[in-house]
Design a protein around this nucleic acid. Structure first.
Lengths: 338, 338
DNA sequence: TGCTGGCACTCGTGCGCGCTGAGTGCCAGG
DNA sequence: CCTGGCACTCAGCGCGCACGAGTGCCAGCA
């Protein structure tokens, strides 16, 4: 176990390095932090920290920089979550209020998060599987062609074309619409399959095929949309990444374009708390030099989706975590209201 | 007016520079192209071309690179649009077929375009103003709360909450829904305002306020959504931009995040043909070192939206234009089918 | 046992230097 | 009007050198 002072040294190193982006040496440390000991002592502590793998030197005779393991310790033990200041909170409210629809909410959130953290923001659209159905609408566009529209409690709308095996009358469509809604409105998406299972039985045999087709389209929509959509923003912040540009930034941009990767990234958050994945803790190797801070958000007590930021491992963890948490909370409120 | 050979020299310079990314000198030119004259002659031609502003040298004793004006001449007079090869066309079809909804179509298009051109792709969602209404749906969620859903012929769906000044009965809602649809279904969005103008008159005075509210929400939706949504992709391709990284890439990423800028960018396309804006021809200064190739696409004969790519001024114009045109055509077909 | 000052050592960075070679402009001759 | 020849320019590269930040180690002190 590391002594109190050595932890303090590690904290100082992380803070300085995050601030200056340059390896920090023993002398500079004692000057900027009141550690109460001499540089020589700090050097000994640094040697120990290096042995333990918390810090490293880019090359001999340079200062030390934190390793992933060092950041991990810093986040777990040495740093809290920095709460937003009152003006910052006001800015968040101001920025998010007045969004007109779900796209707008997500868009504003992404821009806000990118701006607050000066990093790349990722926001997942509210998930269908955990949402509840607000309404199902069925429109007949042609005798054998229907449009199915699904509206969720988070304001999301999905629509699908349905080509019917046989023409279906307006009356039957209205009937189906009514029955569908009475069964699934207000219910969770996950429960929908069993709720509609025996629905075809209530119809004349001539319409039964069409009803089944509609239902399977509905279920397909649920499955397909479980692979979620996301919005990302603030990629311009990547340019502040480091000096050794193309090499660092390229794989990150590539990773950001693969929705699957990002979803998995966010997916690893356990539902309630905030997750911080540092450097090589990220499975995707393009993101090995980045950290991801993510958290779930939701309209009620329950998380329906996630959001987060991607930045260099050298980031201001307390501040970033504070911003992410604050934004997630407020977005949750917005969704609950609408 | 430039002589035939000088134009040929310019074409050779553009082609070589696009290929090698390095300033091209007189000797290299005569070696790679069968111009039939000596380097010295080419040098004289180059001097003329430089006087006229078509090419420039980064510094004395380096080769020449084309200026924006040079690229402009190249695009207008010296280069055609390179048609896609059969395998490429097949790949396009294969990639775009099987899209399930509008988001998917746009998403696939953006990825396809980015991959084909190896540049940043921008695709605008089909515009509402030029689309026609397929259906308007009105749902009552609570006694004084309605949801308005708008479905376009391109498959786009918009929804809005409407808080009514007074409670409104189911019968009136159904009535309004029916009247609305009979008036606007199949009509162009631009025509909607005058079509619904006198609609409140048909209702009892107690409902008139609510009807007006619904109508104004509908009209607002039209106006708001005239500022369009877009999807971008392929930003990782920016890393192939040049050597002097952060400076070049930063403003481009920033510009790409400002939807307004991009919309204006695409907006400058005249409806039918393809537009190429080179370097400083772009109003936004972050894009002064990029070229934008864009074209309208649509489900019928008429363009309902635009798409294009953003790349370095040093790009393969014929190839890029060919890809953009081919993709736009095929997306148009897809939209017409759905 | 732990802290401190001193000291020798390492090595990356920045600077100045000269060389090299691609590329140019100009000119006289065909 | 084209061509070969020639002198000139200058970015890039490699080299050597000095500087200095930073380190590890050690002997001495509380």
């Amino acid at each position: 176990m590391l002594s109190e002072r050595r932890l303090e040294v590690l904290r100082a190193i992380v803070q300085d390095y995050v601030g200056t982006e340059e390896p920090v040496g023993s002398k500079a440390l004692t000057e900027r932090h009141r550690l109460g000991v001499s540089p020589a002592t700090v050097r000994n502590d640094m040697a120990v920290l290096e042995d333990e793998g918390y810090i490293a030197q880019p090359h001999t005779s340079a200062g030390r920089i934190p390793t992933d393991k060092g950041y991990r310790l810093f986040v777990d033990k040495l740093a809290g979550v920095k709460p937003m200041t009152a003006p910052e909170r006001r800015a968040i409210h101001h920025f998010l209020d007045g969004a007109v629809d779900l796209d707008d909410v997500v868009g504003r959130t992404v821009r806000l998060l990118a701006q607050l953290t000066r990093q790349v923001a990722v926001v997942q659209y509210p998930s269908l599987t955990r949402s509840t159905v607000r309404h199902v609408e069925l429109l007949s566009l042609a005798p054998a062609r229907l449009m199915l529209v699904l509206i969720t409690d988070t304001g999301r709308v999905e629509q699908r074309m349905v080509d019917c095996p046989a023409p279906i009358g307006e009356v039957s469509v209205a009937d189906l619409r009514a029955r569908l809604n009475s069964r699934v409105a207000g219910r969770r998406f996950a429960d929908v399959p069993q709720l509609v299972q025996d629905l075809p039985d209530a119809f004349e045999s001539e319409d039964r095929g069409t009803v089944s087709t509609v239902l399977s389209t509905l279920l397909e929509t649920l499955v397909e949309e479980t692979e979620e959509r996301l919005m990302i923003g603030g990629t311009a912040n990547l340019t502040r990444f480091g000096h050794d540009f193309p090499l660092t930034i390229r794989p990150v941009l590539e990773a950001l374009e693969e929705q699957v990767v990002l979803l998995k990234l966010l997916g690893e958050v356990n539902d309630s708390g905030m997750a911080v994945r540092i450097g090589h803790e990220n499975a995707h190797e393009g993101l090995n030099s980045t950290s991801v801070v993510s958290v779930g958000y939701g309209s009620g007590g329950e998380a329906v989706a996630k959001l987060g930021v991607v930045g260099p491992t050298r980031m201001d963890y307390p501040g970033t975590m504070g911003a992410v948490r604050a934004v997630a909370r407020y977005v949750g409120q917005i969704l609950a209201e609408s």
